[in-house]
């Protein structure tokens, strides 16, 4: 699958395209198929998100996951600070990142 991601303009937070809006949770990402570049161009013009770009991903039983380690780390947070990840209460959070 193809996933569209970027960083929220005012906060810098990592965001994922849900098909209608941007979410901070990679689980909400949708497969943009061949439309990623067009959506990215349109969203760049809207100036809500910095540098939207298309990445490879895969759909797992727990939702979409980026293919490359860099985007997996973006999806969760720094691997060395689990207290700062999006799911600090989840002991299994991060097992899929590395």
């Amino acid at each position: 699958m193809k996933i569209l991601t970027g960083n929220d303009l005012p906060t810098g937070d990592v965001v994922w395209w849900t098909g209608a809006d941007w979410s901070r949770h990679v689980e909400d990402a949708v497969d943009v198929g061949e439309h990623g570049e067009a959506i990215a161009a349109r969203e760049a013009g809207a100036q809500r998100v910095n540098g939207p770009y298309v990445i490879d991903g895969e759909l797992t039983d727990k939702g979409p996951r980026p293919a490359h380690i860099k985007d997996r780390i973006r999806a969760l947070g720094p691997t060395v600070r689990p207290d700062l990840t999006l799911k600090p209460a989840d002991a299994t959070a991060g097992t899929w990142v590395i």
């Binding site: 960083n7 906060t11 810098g12 860099k70």
Partner: peptide, 9 residues
Amino acid sequence: GLYLQLHAY
């Protein structure tokens, strides 16, 4: 000195 990195500015 303001960069945009992986998770934030």
